[in-house]
Design a protein around this nucleic acid. Structure first.
Lengths: 214, 214
DNA sequence: AATTGTCGGAATGTTAACATTCGCTCATGA
DNA sequence: TCATGAGCGAATGTTAACATTCCGACAATT
């Protein structure tokens, strides 16, 4: 069973590199992303860079302004609240779809990611797995537009976790794997009510932990 | 009270023209959008056209494939179901936000659009006002990312209504204005429970009417 | 007859040069 | 001292030419 081998243009390549760079802290919130600078650093022309910045804007990782270029946005408390509330309704739908009509193997893939979290290396790896876990849930939901809506805020959630993780790293890495394991179990049992409750508690937990002290 | 006079580039201009053209039926679902052709027709170069197509892809109005160009997608029954379910959770949140913390003037703006629907000209104008009404609700919600999520499917909903409107135009134009008036009234009364119920019935009504017979 | 290889045309992907816009600085004036 | 305007520099917006990729048709081979 082969996945479609799609050819990617330079733009996608550049977008991925930029995303990694932002997550790595090379371009912290507030930093300006100059097209010529990026083009020179990556060894491509401004075209693909421009296109990549547009894609990252769609994901909320950069802000684009007329004739003023792209900058990495700083997430305010209000932004965090927006992400929290929007994520809640999206994830509720995802959980309902997944429980209702996902293939068993897709739900097992979710559980498999949850297991990997138990032996994550550092906090950054944990965050990556956290994102991967939720990706798997949306994939199991089999809802293209829901997945697209998630991907529109996914990077922002990722960035939020990375920037706020220092304030309580211990609690985060300690409780998170176990929580995800329970989440996966509820999904595999196709227990919608329990799953919805657990996911809500999970989000509330993470939100209180990370948004409160920032 | 002036709105910010923002300078728009050619790309945005092109995107709007293309959107109008698609809604007008110039490019029906399945049609190919060739960059050179569009650039020549609009009197600009391929750069802005490319950027515009990327923006329209973000809105789901065109599909872009590697080295195969852009096409107007045809909406299947599954697509309609996806739009319906996603729209439901987004609009629920929008209504809750609007009832909870919208300014009175924003809710009056919603009602004002609803009133204009009573004296709409043709069916196309009615659909435009329908979209405008829901735009106003999202604007009243004051939730930037929720609004962005709506805008990601807005054009698809618009196109869906336009393509399916012929099957039951009479029912659509007949009942819709009254329904929206009640919706607006519930919002102005800040009656969350009633508003949520009415919006759900509204969507169910439109979905049954238009998706069923296609 | 069916499959594979090759070729041509057409469209997109990419590049580099040109045009435009914006923020900043500094001089000017009241 | 503050407000106003011109000019400069830097970055983005736009363009047109070049490179690459893909699809379809047709020929060759088994």
């Amino acid at each position: 069973m082969l996945r479609p081998a799609r050819r990617r243009g330079l733009a996608d390549e550049v977008a991925d590199r930029l995303q990694d760079a932002i997550f790595s802290g090379v371009y912290p919130p507030g930093a300006r992303l100059r097209e010529v600078e990026l083009a020179a650093a990556l060894g491509v022309s401004r075209g693909p860079v421009r296109e990549a910045l547009l894609r990252l804007e769609r994901e909320g990782l950069v802000r684009n302004e007329w004739h003023r270029g792209a900058t990495v946005p700083t997430l305010s408390a209000r932004d965090a609240a927006e992400l929290h509330s929007l994520r809640a309704v999206l994830e509720d739908l995802a959980v309902r779809c997944a429980v209702e009509r996902a293939a068993d193997e897709d739900l097992e893939a979710v559980a498999e990611v949850a297991e990997r979290m138990a032996r994550a290396g550092d906090a950054h790896a944990m965050v990556r797995l956290d994102m991967e876990f939720h990706d798997a849930v949306y994939a199991a939901a089999g809802h293209l537009r829901l997945r697209a809506a998630w991907e529109a805020i996914r990077s922002q959630v990722h960035l939020f976790l990375l920037t706020r993780i220092g304030v309580s790293e211990r609690d985060y890495t300690g409780h998170i794997p176990d929580e995800h394991a329970r989440l996966a179990a509820a999904l595999r049992a196709r227990d919608a009510e329990t799953a919805l409750r657990l996911f809500a508690e999970h989000r509330r937990h993470a939100f209180d932990l990370l948004a409160g002290e920032g």
